[in-house]
């Protein structure tokens, strides 16, 4: 007579079913695959296949405009990586991205602390929340038009600066080689800080108040509380947000395209505009695919860090 013993963690139902997957009905075995199939199908069709195609394009001499493309191996990668314009665009992307992410973080924390402050009454706090989140509501095209008007030589910013004596004459911020990259970075900072601010505000509201009370009892001042209580509590959010922002900002295209188009003197040329021009100005789709694959590889490194971080957080 067959008998079975229940081990801890094994329920009655599984204990009575004979061991071995082949014994389970086909429908039951297929069920998990069927359940994930819509997602898998979408990921396959909208991500995996296009990425594979683009990688394939990057290994051809030229595609789309060439009816008989030839396989050239890594030749396009060698060409791109030895093109000074690519490295110039990569350098601009780095400055633009790092500047934006750091400023997003600093401004986001400052505004979140302010909006979380108990010293502010509820109504003004709600009004400030609405005002501070405004830049995030606008699309990149609207932001570009708005800032082009603000930074115009006859715009508000030049008027203010010349009125108070900070400038002797109006500066075309977006059209001057020495100021254009700074100008587009400022615009990107302005349009992106609210996302940090709102996420950090949510994080701040989750920090237990008794930690602050304990810190106060121990004689900690505002700065000490910020360093020893607030920052450690926000660290997981800050880390995740910084990685996500790094990915998003690296891929910023619309804002730069609509404000400077990569000029003047290619000082605001970033990898996204560089790639776009290869594709739709020069019709060198294979080179554009190569540039895109290089950006993808860089983004994957950041994405791996992000996923590992999320996994660690989930395990805690």
């Amino acid at each position: 007579m067959a008998s079975s013993l229940l081990t801890p963690g094994q329920d009655q139902r599984s204990a009575t079913v004979p061991a071995g997957r082949h014994q389970r009905p086909l429908r039951e075995r297929l069920e998990p695959y069927l359940l994930i199939s819509p997602t898998m199908l979408l990921i396959l069709g909208l991500m995996v296949i296009p990425i594979v195609i683009v990688i394939g394009y990057s290994l051809m001499d030229n595609v789309v405009t060439n009816p008989t493309p030839k396989f050239v191996g890594i030749s396009n990668y060698v060409t791109i990586l030895t093109t000074p314009a690519f490295w110039s665009a990569a350098g601009n992307t780095l400055i633009f991205t790092v500047g934006s992410v750091v400023a997003h973080m600093v401004i986001g924390i400052l505004f979140a602390l302010m909006l979380n402050s108990k010293t502010m009454a509820r109504v003004p706090r709600a009004i400030f929340r609405a005002i501070y989140i405004l830049p995030w509501i606008f699309t990149a095209s609207v932001v570009a038009v708005l800032w082009r008007l603000l930074l115009d030589p006859s715009g508000v910013i030049n008027y203010l600066f010349t009125s108070v004596g900070l400038l002797h004459e109006a500066v075309p911020w977006l059209a001057t080689a020495s100021t254009a990259l700074l100008a587009v970075t400022v615009i990107n900072i302005w349009s992106g800080y609210p996302f940090f601010m709102i996420s950090l505000l949510a994080g701040l509201q989750g920090v237990p108040t008794d930690l602050y009370e304990a810190a106060r009892v121990d004689g900690a001042g505002f700065f000490r509380q910020f360093v020893s209580v607030t920052l450690p509590a926000l660290k997981p959010i800050l880390y995740s947000m910084a990685l996500l922002d790094l990915l998003w900002t690296t891929q910023q295209f619309t804002l730069i395209w609509a404000t400077t188009g990569g000029g003047p003197l290619e000082r605001t040329e970033v990898l996204s505009t560089f790639t776009y021009k290869l594709a739709f100005n020069s019709y060198q789709f294979s080179m554009a695919a190569t540039s895109a694959v290089i950006v993808l590889a860089g983004s994957l490194v950041v994405a791996v860090f992000y996923v590992r971080r999320q996994r660690k957080a989930a395990q805690r």
Binding site: R148, D152, P153, A170, P172, L174, A175, T176, A177, A180, T259, T260, G263, P264, L265
Partner: peptide, 8 residues
């Protein structure tokens, strides 16, 4: 010419 030609 109007200033800021490089961005117009």
């Amino acid at each position: 010419v109007l200033p800021g030609a490089n961005g117009l």
